[in-house]
Simulated scan of single mutants.
Amino acid sequence: MFLPNSRYSRVATVQTTTSTGETVVALKLRQLTPARGEPQMVQAGDRLDLFAHARTGDATQFWHVADANSALDGRSLVETPGETLLVPGS
């Protein structure tokens, strides 16, 4: 269902019923492990994939940056220039 390098690739699923009676499969909530990282100051135009590529050489690992900063929406981490976020290494 997901690519092997996806943050969701090893997440268990559950089956549930919606309020309309439809049965759906959903992902269980992932437990985030504490991540260490180097603090980086956000500049205008920054993106999580660019931070990930600079630290690991793999832009698809952007979700590690979001997880290290407990962000549900990673875009919020780069909205405000001057903010600091943690960028984990390889």
Score class of each variant (00 low, 15 high):
Leu50Gly: 12
Asn5Ser: 06
Asp58Glu: 13
Thr60Pro: 01
Gln61Met: 15
Arg47Phe: 03
Leu86Pro: 03
Gly89Asn: 11
Leu50Asp: 09
Asn69Ile: 10
Gly74Asp: 08
Gly57Ser: 11
Asp58Pro: 00
Gly74Glu: 05
Gln31Ala: 14
Thr23Gln: 10
Ser76Met: 14
Thr16Trp: 06
Ala71Tyr: 02
Glu38Asn: 05
Leu77Cys: 00
Ser90Val: 10
Asp58Ser: 09
Ala12Cys: 05
Pro4Asp: 13
Gln40Gly: 01
Ala26Ser: 05
Ala59Lys: 12
Leu48Asn: 02
Thr60Tyr: 07
Trp63Ser: 12
Ser90Gly: 02
Pro88Asp: 09
Gly21Arg: 01
Thr60Arg: 09
Phe2Ser: 11
Thr20Met: 02
Val78Tyr: 00
Asp67Gly: 06
Leu86Ser: 05
Thr84His: 15
Leu48Gln: 02
Leu29Phe: 06
Ala44Pro: 13
Arg47Asp: 03
Leu85Ser: 04
Leu48Glu: 01
Ala44Glu: 11
Gly37Phe: 08
Arg10Phe: 08
Thr23Lys: 06
Val24Tyr: 01
Ala59Tyr: 01
Ala71Ser: 04
Phe62Pro: 00
Leu29Ser: 13
Tyr8Ile: 04
Arg7Leu: 07
Leu50Met: 07
Arg30Val: 13
Thr33Leu: 15
Thr20Phe: 05
Leu48Phe: 08
Thr84Gln: 13
Met1Arg: 13
Thr80Ile: 14
Asp67Phe: 02
Val24Pro: 00
Ser6His: 04
Thr60Asn: 09
Arg30Ser: 15
Ala35Asp: 08
Thr17Tyr: 02
Ala44Phe: 05
Gln31Ile: 11
Gln15Val: 05
Gly82Thr: 03
Leu29Asn: 12
Gly89Trp: 06
Met41Val: 12
Val78Pro: 02
Leu50Trp: 02
Thr33Phe: 08
Glu79Asn: 13
Leu27Phe: 08
Val14Met: 07
Phe2Thr: 08
Ala44Lys: 02
Leu48Thr: 09
Thr23Asp: 02
Val78Ser: 06
Val11Ser: 09
Pro4Ile: 09
Leu72Asn: 02
Arg10Ile: 10
Arg75Gly: 14
Ala52Ser: 10
His53Phe: 13
Gln43Tyr: 06
Thr18Tyr: 01
Thr17Lys: 15
Val11Gly: 07
Thr13Ser: 09
Gln40Leu: 08
Val11Tyr: 04
Thr20Asn: 03
Thr13Tyr: 02
Asp73Arg: 10
Thr16Asn: 08
Leu86His: 07
Asp46Ser: 09
Pro81Gly: 12
Leu86Ala: 11
Leu72Ile: 07
Met1Gln: 09
Ala71Leu: 00
Asp46Met: 06
Ala59Arg: 14
Lys28Trp: 03
Gln43Thr: 11
Glu38Arg: 14
Thr20Cys: 03
Thr23Ser: 08
Ser19Ala: 15
Ala35His: 10
Ala12Ser: 05
Thr84Glu: 13
Phe2Cys: 02
Ala71Thr: 10
Gly74Cys: 03
Thr60Cys: 00
Arg55Ser: 11
Lys28Tyr: 06
Gln43Arg: 15
His53Asn: 14
Ala66Ser: 12
Leu3Gly: 00
